[in-house]
Simulated scan of single mutants.
Amino acid sequence: MDKLEQDFLRGLQTVLGQPNPFVPLHEPEFMGNEWELVKNCLDSTFVSSVGKYVDRFEVMLAEYTGAKYAVAVVNGTAALHIALLLAGVRPGDEVLIPTLSFVATANAVSHCGAIPHFIDSEFKTLGIDPHALDDYLKQCSLSGSEGLTNRFTGRRIAAVVPMHTYGHPVDMASLLDVANRYHLPVVEDTAESLGSRYQGQHTGTFGQLGTLSFNGNKVITTGGGGAILTNDAELARQAKHLTTTAKQPHRWEFFHDVVAWNYRLPNLNAALGCAQMERLSDFLGRKRLLAQQYQEVFRDIEGIGFVVEPANSQSNYWLNTLQLRQPSLEMRDRLLTAANDAGYQCRPTWTLLHKLPMYVDCPHAPLPVAEHLEASLINVPSSAKLAGGGR
Rank of each mutant, 00 (worst) to 15 (best):
L373D: 06
E296S: 14
V47L: 09
S315T: 01
P98M: 07
D129K: 00
N180G: 10
V103I: 12
F30P: 02
N20E: 12
R155W: 10
G88W: 05
S315W: 00
L37F: 13
T230Y: 05
L280R: 05
H372M: 14
M172G: 06
T337E: 14
E29F: 12
L265T: 03
P366Y: 06
G224S: 13
M31G: 12
V297D: 05
E36K: 13
T203F: 08
L126W: 00
D134I: 07
A70I: 02
R90W: 06
V178T: 09
R264M: 06
R334N: 10
T99W: 06
K247P: 03
N267K: 04
N231F: 05
H168R: 10
Y166L: 14
R279G: 06
P381Y: 01
N33V: 09
D232E: 08
A191C: 07
A173W: 10
S213V: 05
N215R: 15
F152S: 13
R332E: 08
G305A: 12
G113C: 10
R325D: 15
G76W: 00
A338C: 03
V89Q: 04
Q292F: 09
R56N: 15
M331Q: 12
E188C: 04
G127H: 01
R347A: 13
F206N: 08
D120G: 04
P368W: 02
W261G: 09
A67I: 00
K68G: 03
V38L: 11
T221Q: 04
S376R: 01
G390R: 15
V59K: 13
F214I: 04
H164L: 09
G303E: 04
A246D: 01
T205Q: 05
L194H: 01
N217K: 11
T211Y: 06
E27S: 12
A365W: 06
I301R: 06
E146R: 14
L335V: 03
G210M: 08
Q314Y: 10
D129N: 07
R56L: 14
V73S: 04
N320A: 08
K247R: 15
A270G: 02
F206K: 07
S49Y: 15
K247D: 07
Y64V: 02
D333S: 11
R10M: 09
M31C: 15
I301P: 03
G11Q: 03
V73L: 07
S328R: 05
Q208R: 14
P366M: 03
H183T: 14
S313C: 11
A271M: 00
K247W: 10
E94Q: 11
E146F: 11
A70F: 04
Y317W: 09
G273M: 02
A339N: 05
L133V: 01
A179Q: 05
